[in-house]
């Protein structure tokens, strides 16, 4: 399915039919199940989904961090022309930290408790650059300063536990960006933080993208964060991309019933919603036993609009519907226009 989304020539990262399977005692867990999307250079792409949607696993698969687990990764992850799934470990290691970097959800556990933050940042620099310790220290201090750590020269020698949650996440970001990678994968970078600190960190990510030109894959469960930060969005459900679009397009003209459901579930801080929220009924499907048809069909309120019960028997393909908007749904374009609930 190559011609589904944006042209591969434009993209820095191009994921095609990615599958991640974890063998367990109860069977094979299909965490990611045929995922395809693209990231253009310098673009902030939001990967949004609920727990178990496969969004975090996707980030780790791109970096090759699942190679040390029992997971089976297949499909294609093309970064700058190279296929990361097939690449030898040594090549991937040269890319990790240098071209592809990652920021994790909980900065306290993601930083080594026994090393100073400065040494951890400069270590990240020295792996990929043959420089003296002093030059690395200089560079790390500069980076700490850039991400907003006050008194970076002094704080270089402080340990992670001596920082607040927000400051720790700044350190993580400094560490990830110290080699100016072309793609930063941020896995729920603000979920563990308070909302006022979240706003600071998201602002920082946007600024750094502008300054360093790094593309960002922002993995999150929060559509609000996506709307504030991203250029385009991948909506994931049960290991698949159900919709990908530019951010304004997605929020103005959402096309997948799951996206409608997510938007309908959200109370808004900036406006009064009608009396009741419109949640999605039921629970996400078990990743051990996926329905043969559309993964969302059991919770979807629109499957009767599609003739012949196709939703139950036939898995819809991710189809390009113009303007870089793709959707995985059996509803016709016309049906989606008339059926879409008015959310705001």
């Amino acid at each position: 399915m190559p011609a589904e989304t944006t042209l591969p020539g434009d993209s820095l990262l191009s994921v095609r039919d990615l599958r991640v399977q974890f063998p367990t005692d109860d069977g094979i867990v299909r965490s990611v199940d045929g995922l395809s999307f693209d990231v253009a250079p310098g673009e902030i792409v939001g990967v949004v989904g609920e727990s178990g949607s496969g969004k975090s696993v996707t980030g780790q698969a791109i970096l090759g961090l699942l190679r040390r687990t029992r997971a089976r990764v297949t499909g294609e992850i093309r970064f700058d022309g190279r296929d990361l799934v097939a690449a030898p470990e040594a090549e991937l290691r040269r890319l990790r930290g240098a071209e592809l970097a990652m920021v994790f959800q909980d900065p306290l556990s993601a930083l080594h408790p026994y090393y100073t933050v400065g040494s951890q940042v400069s270590e990240a620099y020295r792996v990929h650059n043959r420089v003296s310790k002093r030059a690395a220290r200089e560079r790390a201090t500069q980076m700490l300063d850039r991400v907003g750590i006050p008194e970076p020269h002094r704080r270089y020698d402080a340990y992670p536990h001596e920082f607040s949650g927000g400051m720790r996440q700044r350190v993580m970001i400094a560490m990830a960006l110290v080699c100016t990678p072309r793609l930063l994968i941020a896995d729920e970078p603000t979920t563990a933080l308070d909302v006022t600190v979240q706003a600071q960190i998201l602002e920082l990510l946007k600024d750094l993208r502008d300054e360093f030109g790094s593309a960002v894959l922002l993995v999150t469960h929060d559509l609000g964060v996506v709307a504030e930060t991203c250029d385009s969005v991948v909506v994931m459900y049960a290991g698949q991309c159900v919709e990908q679009a530019g951010v304004e397009d997605l929020f103005a003209r959402p096309q997948a019933p799951y996206t409608w459901g997510l938007l309908g579930s959200m109370p808004r801080v900036d406006q009064d919603r009608r009396d009741r929220l419109a949640p999605i009924g039921g629970q996400p499907p078990s990743l051990l036993a996926m329905p043969p048809g559309c993964a969302f069909e059991p919770r979807c309120g629109y499957h009767e609009e599609v003739p012949d019960g196709r939703c139950r028997t036939e898995r819809p393909a991710l189809v390009h519907s113009g303007d870089g908007h793709s959707v995985r749904c059996h509803l016709t374009t016309g049906q989606r226009l008339t059926l879409r609930p008015v959310t705001s």
């Binding site: 909302v195 559509l223 609000g224 964060v225 304004e248 929020f251």
Partner: peptide, 10 residues
Amino acid sequence: AVPVPDPALR
């Protein structure tokens, strides 16, 4: 600081 799910308001 609360993010709003509406990029038009950004």
